[in-house]
Computed example of a mutant assay.
Amino acid sequence: MLKFLDLSVKFTVLPRASKERGASLIVVMLLLVIVSILGISGVQISMMAERGTRNDRDTQIAWQSTEAALMDAEFDILGQPASSSTKRNSIFKRGSTDISQFVQDCGTSGNTIGLCALNATGKPAWLAVDFTITANNAPTTVFGTYTGRTFPSGNAGIQPAQPPRYVIEPIPDPSMSRTKDPKDVKYIYRITAMGFGPNADTQTVSQVIFRN
């Protein structure tokens, strides 16, 4: 007698409501992921914009500090204000041919602080000097050293982290270019200043040529 195997397959049909609930859960999860990504991206963009605005503000403060140092250097050369007890304007006589007070690699003491001899070859002094040195023997002149003027700085509030600094170099007056005897060459002055932002790493440099 032949026996046949029962190979029939039974299918269980899930209720439609159960299928719909499963699909809805997947859609909700996808939406949550997308919203989370958009939220994180928005926060990152906001943080980048805030950092950019802060950097721009710090740079503007540093530029203002630099401009103040250039003006202080001009007062230094002119011996202003007259009430200052630390003037050294006798070094910067109009039409002067004496540059003996200007030191190679920049002076660090007395009336020679920040006075840099002109380098005939190689880098000019303003490129070789380190403006970030703040020790007493720094080769740069800190704001107000020879003018008695004050400059607000420090960690209180939004202001430069430290006072600006400058150096002064003598350069031959272009109007004397035809002078053959070096002893007759007259000099004008190149002022280079560095200012700082609320973050000392934010630095700006500016330069002017000044004729006394």
Rank of each mutant, 00 (worst) to 15 (best):
A73N: 01
A73R: 00
A73W: 00
F75V: 04
D76K: 10
D76Q: 14
I77S: 11
L78K: 15
G79L: 12
G79P: 08
Q80R: 14
Q80H: 04
Q80F: 14
Q80L: 15
P81Q: 06
S83N: 11
S84K: 01
S85D: 11
S85Q: 11
T86C: 05
R88E: 15
N89V: 02
S90W: 13
S90T: 14
I91Y: 07
K93I: 06
K93A: 15
K93W: 03
K93C: 08
R94E: 13
G95R: 01
G95M: 02
S96D: 03
S96H: 03
S96M: 01
S96L: 03
T97C: 03
S100H: 04
Q101E: 15
Q101L: 06
F102V: 01
V103H: 00
V103Y: 00
V103N: 00
V103S: 00
D105F: 07
C106Y: 02
G107M: 09
G110H: 08
G110E: 10
N111Y: 10
T112V: 08
T112Q: 15
G114M: 06
L115Q: 12
L115G: 12
L115T: 05
A117Q: 14
L118Y: 13
N119K: 10
T121C: 08
K123A: 15
A125S: 15
W126H: 12
L127H: 10
A128N: 12
V129T: 13
D130I: 07
F131P: 06
F131C: 05
T132R: 12
T132F: 05
I133K: 11
I133S: 14
I133R: 10
T134C: 06
T134S: 15
A135V: 02
N136I: 08
N136C: 09
N137E: 14
N137W: 03
N137G: 08
A138F: 02
A138C: 09
T140E: 09
T141C: 12
T147R: 08
G148E: 08
S153P: 00
S153V: 00
N155I: 02
A156D: 15
G157Y: 06
G157D: 14
Q162W: 00
Q162N: 00
R165T: 12
Y166A: 14
V167S: 07
V167D: 09
I168D: 13
I168C: 12
I168S: 11
E169W: 05
